[in-house]
């Protein structure tokens, strides 16, 4: 049984867990913005991809299905780029030992990575949305709240899956390569309903709700797998 599940540590309350998650995420965000070249490269990648797509359509109207697909493909690649250096960097530098020496659970360590990654993806993703709105004009018809909800849920799901896979492969030789290969199949249950729901919103059809339900179910499944198994990942 993973240590996480049979942990009977006294006094490790939920408030402490959340505080630890925030401490870990804040440390990663602070470190990230002290080496801004990584964020800048993420923004450049997003802008470049949107510009190329816009040029390939001759600057004209782009089908909503294409806009939705492009958005989520780019978000997937942003997630991969964000998480290739997440746990792998902790492992390469040896700081994973420092995290394991802390009086916090393995799930808090994972939670810190998820919060850091999600915030970073949402931040860069916001710039991506602006680029997309500028160069691949789409009409949401006032359905902004629904769009933001799907965007936030999808980004969180991708981030959770990526953090889990990143932790799983961090001690492997080709951890960055493995992350890219493993994350694509793992993220399909998130990507498919997210693309379908986004397309539904852009077209204005009634397909959004079933896709949103599927997205929530996929997110729940990934969360359950993570909670049940991540205790093993940090064990040696």
């Amino acid at each position: 049984m993973p240590r996480e599940l049979k942990n009977i540590d006294n006094g490790y309350r939920w408030s402490a867990r959340l505080y630890h998650v925030w401490l870990l995420a804040e440390k990663d965000l602070r470190s990230e913005f002290r080496r801004p070249y990584e964020v800048i490269s993420l923004l450049t990648f997003s802008l470049g991809a949107v510009l190329i797509a816009s040029l390939s359509f001759g600057g004209g109207q782009v089908p909503p299905e294409m806009v939705a697909s492009l958005l989520w493909i780019l978000l997937l690649f942003l997630t991969i780029l964000t998480y290739t250096t997440s746990f792998a960097r902790e492992s390469d530098r040896g700081t994973i030992g420092g995290l394991k020496s802390l009086p916090c659970s393995a799930l808090a360590i994972l939670g810190g990575k998820v919060v850091y990654g999600t915030l970073l993806i949402l931040l860069v993703g916001s710039a991506l949305l602006i680029f997309t709105a500028l160069f691949l004009p789409f009409d949401l018809g006032g359905r902004y709240a629904g769009f933001l909800l799907i965007y936030a849920l999808g980004a969180t799901g991708l981030s959770l899956a990526a953090a889990f896979v990143s932790g799983l492969v961090m001690f492997s030789e080709g951890s960055t390569l493995l992350l890219s290969f493993l994350l694509i199949p793992v993220s399909v249950p998130i990507l498919l309903p997210a693309v379908r729901a986004t397309t539904g919103l852009l077209v204005g059809t009634a397909e959004v709700l079933p896709a949103l339900q599927l997205l929530l179910a996929s997110l729940g499944l990934i969360l359950a797998v993570t909670l049940l198994t991540f205790g093993f990942v940090l064990q040696e």
Partner: peptide, 8 residues
């Protein structure tokens, strides 16, 4: 194994 956080 069960009280790692307390020990750490």
């Amino acid at each position: 194994e069960s009280e790692g956080i307390t020990a750490r």
